[in-house]
Design a protein around this nucleic acid. Sequence first.
DNA 1: AAGGTTGACCGCCAGG
DNA 2: ATCCTGGCGGTCAACC
Length: 329
Amino acid sequence: MQAETIAVVAYDRINPFNLGVPCGVFGEDRTLGGLPRFKVLVCAGEPGILTTSAGFTIATSCGLKDFRRADTVIVPSWRDPEDDPPQALLDALCRAHERGTRIVSLCVGSYVLAAAGLLEGRPATTHWYWAQRFAARYPNVRLNPQVLYVDDGDIVTSAGTAAGIDCCLHLIRSKYGVKAANVVARRLVVQPHRQGGQAQYIEQPVPGSAKDERIGVLLEWLNRNLRAAHTLDSLARRVSMTRRTFTRRFRRATGTTLGKWLLAQQLALAQRLLESGDRSIDTIAYAAGFGSATSLRQHFTRALQVSPSNYRKAFRGRPTRGGRDGEIR
DNA sequence: AAGGTTGACCGCCAGG
DNA sequence: ATCCTGGCGGTCAACC
């Protein structure tokens, strides 16, 4: 297969984790796992010495001119959303985009794409912490701060830090399939597909208050008792709140609704059970709190675009015995 | 396939 | 004034 070239923009004071995400996903040779070999070019997005926020410096011979060789350009966050990116970088991004190169941003890299004008009128996301300021500064961008990433074809944006991994996995999944993405996910030891949006990761500014604590304790308990049938009323009773207050507090604490949160947790559990062990779909459905295998199949397929049994097959990739997997080197 | 039932979600308002 | 709570009821979707 023709090697796809990925240009990753490095800039001064870059956070090494952000730089590492695309390099970790695309930069390793996983051809034995059945993946194509990507060509990763770390490109200096500005002249001068590039230091990282961890103190070491980056030396690369690639620069903006090398965008020309890329199929995809990734902007792995930005040092400071309030710090305007250099015009030369913005111009290079625009030219690449006009040539048909896909432009991807991680975290607050959306600010760079927006500054380049690439997000005008288009759907996008960014780190939840900056979402409000982003929306105020770029009102024409259809910002959705609830999701982990937004794939708008030639432009892809993603939410904070680790969502960059979700986003990069998505890029692999959409082009090379679920199986390929799972190979990478396994190697990185992350979930192949996280459920729900970034809302569930948004911490409340005052987490320790006694009242939020009640929801927190409940969530922990729920996660250990997913198989039981829960209703809004039974849970509200459990934390001694009225139904209305409970739904409100729940949303404030989790950023989502009870139903969505529960379903996401149940699906995540079902995924884990499918990935390991040989339990029947029926058993797994029951263990994860679904009323029936039919119900599990329906929700699972809708959320992941793969049926449970195909997910299991794809995740395993190939027959495994004794915990060894041919894809893992 | 249509219709009924149930439960979840949330806007709204009144009261603390 | 501001925030929170409890209750009502409309809408929607899942399930039967």
